[in-house]
Each structure stands twice: as structure tokens, then as C-alpha cells.
Amino acid sequence: MRLEDVWVRYHRQGPWVLRGVDVRLGPGEVAVVLGRNGVGKSTLLQVAAGVLRPGRGRVTDRPARVGWVPERFPADQPFTVARYLTGMARVAGLRGAAVDEAVTSWTDRLGLAAFRSVRLPELSKGTAQKVGLAQAMLRLPGLLVLDEPWEGLDAATRELVPELIAEVLAADGAVLVSDHRGETVRLPAARRWSVADGSLTEEAPSADEAIAVVEVAVPAARVAGTVARLRAEGHQILRVRADTSIGTPPARPAAGPVRPAGDLTPEQPAGVEGADVVVEPAAGEAR
């Protein structure tokens, strides 16, 4: 897909929101659109998805099937989740048994199974956002456009977004994501486009500079060994702390016998019972 000298404004006499954007996104490629609020990220995404028509310039070679996840899902509709998704599957061109198959598989994967007969206006924001994700994926799109997909999602579904993206990429689809919260660190292979003052610049590939913070829960007895090993592998240890929330989060790997954290002092760097190690790639080449 290619955006050729695309100019966009919302009113005839209004200011140009995008000015002469010229960019190409090939099959199997993912690009992250970065920028401050109101800078035109959503506008760029909507032009790519085919929702907005550019005032000047054009979009060529857009894949036939586009999945668009809007920033806010339009929940003000008189349908239940299952009815809405069934309707959208048919609108996307699915027929017969394939409709139910797609709806069932996506409601299951996104944790919407319990909400199938709930009406859209009654959903929480995050659950509605999942319906937004589901409708875009019902039929595997050749171009997936995600506008702030992590907004309002719970931890388990946030992890799922990169999975969906990988699926589209594996089928030679292209993916465009906007993000202003740094969640796209989960997409290390992504090209980075930053939008400012109406124009788009591609940031040079910077895998070395990108820094992610990974929190690791380790049984207290193994903290010292783990810290040493991670250091040896070139990671930077930011801090070691007693985990006050231990025992509750299901996403974390089990960390041995759980003890109340109140009897620990945060200053104890190692040897504490139930501790979190926060690591970062080695700072040497990073900064």
C-alpha cells in the first residue's frame, strides 16, 4: 500500500492536518505511528483504512480486505455482542457456517464469551474495545489498522494484540498501529513513523536504542543467582524489590511459597522472600 503525496483537511478553508505525506507499507510490514495528541495520527490511519478521502494525493494498492479498529468503539447500538459480530461477519462477506465459526472463535479468544448476549451499550469501555478488535479480525484482513488498540484493555488482552498483529503479518498482510503510551515496545520489528506539524518522518531503525523494562518475578531464594546471571548476559538491573502484590496476579509465573511482604524491608537487595527483579538491556550501547 502506498500513500502518494497525501494532504488532508477537515474543512474547505481549514488548516491542512496532513501535508504531503508520502509513504509505503509493504505486505508483511508493520508500522507504528507516533506523535503527540491531536497531531494527526488518527487522521493518517483513517486515510490508510479508506475512511477519509484525502483532499489531495491518493492511496494506491490498498489490500481488498481492511480491518479498522477505531479509537473508540461505537457502543451506542441496539445489538448484543453476538448479534453485532454476526452482522459484521456477514457484512464482511462471510456466509453460512463460517459466520458462526468466526464469531465463536473470536469471542472465545478475546474473552468475550461471557458477554455474547450482553447489549453493546452495557459493556465497559475495555470490553467494547475488544468487540472493536473482534470485528476487524472476523475475516483475516490484508491491512489491519489499529488506532490506540491498547487503550482500556486489561493485561491479558494487551498481550494478545501483538499476537493478532503477528497473524496478519504471517498471512502477508500489513499492519498500521498508533500509540502514544509506549506500548508498541511490544512490536520490536515495527517501522516507526512519527507525525509532527502535518508531516511524517520515518525514524531510523533503532533496535539498539529501544529500551524495554521487563519485570521478572523470581522465588526469593533465587534472586541473587538470577541477578548475577542477567548481569552476565548484559542486562542492566534497575532494582530489586519485594513484591507487595504477590499472590494475586494470574499472569505472573508462580513464585514459590507466598509470604506477606510486610515483614520485608525494601532496602534488602537480595535474599528477600518473593522479590521482583527489574531489568533493562545493558546501558552501554543504549544511551
Partner: peptide
């Protein structure tokens, strides 16, 4: 009755 964003979703699915 159809929200604006839903109309755009329909447009993305079937074309303008």
C-alpha cells in the same frame, strides 16, 4: 440511528 464510526466501519467493510 447508526453512529458515525459504525457507518465508517461499514464503509471499510464494503466500500463507499
Amino acid at each position: 440511528v447508526e453512529p458515525d464510526v459504525q457507518r465508517r466501519l461499514a464503509q471499510v467493510a464494503v466500500g463507499a
